[in-house]
Structures are given as C-alpha cells and as structure tokens.
C-alpha cells in the first residue's frame, strides 16, 4: 500500500518545522504518528505521485502500488541529485532496470 515508511530510517525530519513529506504531499496525507515517525493517513487516498518518496532525505519512503492492481514485490527507488534522478526499478521476477532522468537544465 502506498507509501510504505521504513520506521528505522525515518527520523521525522527533526530539524524541520514540518517533515518534508508532510510539506509536499498534494493530498495532505502525510503526517507524523505519536512516535514522531511519518505516516500516511489513508493509503487509499494516495495518488502514487511519489513526491514524498523523492523528497525524503533518509530514503525512508517506498511507494508501493495497491496489491489489487500490481503484484508483489516490485520496487521503484529514486536517487535524487541536483539536476537529475537516478531510478532503479526491480520487477516481480527480479529484473533490474536503471534510468537517468534529467530534471533541470545545467
């Protein structure tokens, strides 16, 4: 279910007034739980836009599609640089693909 939080990695963006995932979620779905870790209020209301996944400085958020639509355990992991994102995609059969996407002019 989207988005899945790695509670060990998530530090709740302690230095920020508001965690970055909460700041950017276009659906106001990300917030902190009682332990100060990120949580999604309602996975069913997620658009899978991956804004939270891309902005998390700890790499603690993984976007998972609803199982009703896509099988387990595919992964799509972004590594965000200044002007590009390197994406790693692993399909349900373990096939790995990598992509580099330019996001801003140099």
């Amino acid at each position: 279910m989207p988005p899945k939080i790695n509670l060990t990695k998530c530090d709740g963006c302690k230095a920020e007034e508001e965690p970055l995932c909460e700041q950017v979620c276009p659906g106001d779905l990300m917030t902190l739980n009682e332990d100060g870790k990120a949580m999604c209020r309602d996975a069913g209301d997620c658009w899978d836009c991956m804004c939270c996944t891309k902005i998390c400085p700890q790499g603690a958020i993984e976007t998972r599609l609803p199982y009703q639509l896509g099988y387990y355990p595919a992964k799509l992991i972004p590594r965000v640089g200044t002007n590009k994102i390197m994406w790693t995609c692993v399909d349900i059969n373990g096939k790995v693909e990598r992509f580099v996407v330019k996001t801003r002019n140099d």
Binding site: Y71, L76, D91, I92, K95
Partner: peptide, 12 residues
Amino acid sequence: RPSYVLFLAARG
C-alpha cells in the same frame, strides 16, 4: 507518472 513504471514492473 513515475509509478506507472512501477506498475509495469509489478505486472512483470
């Protein structure tokens, strides 16, 4: 829509 690439992977 990056998650479409994830969708294709989730369908293998």
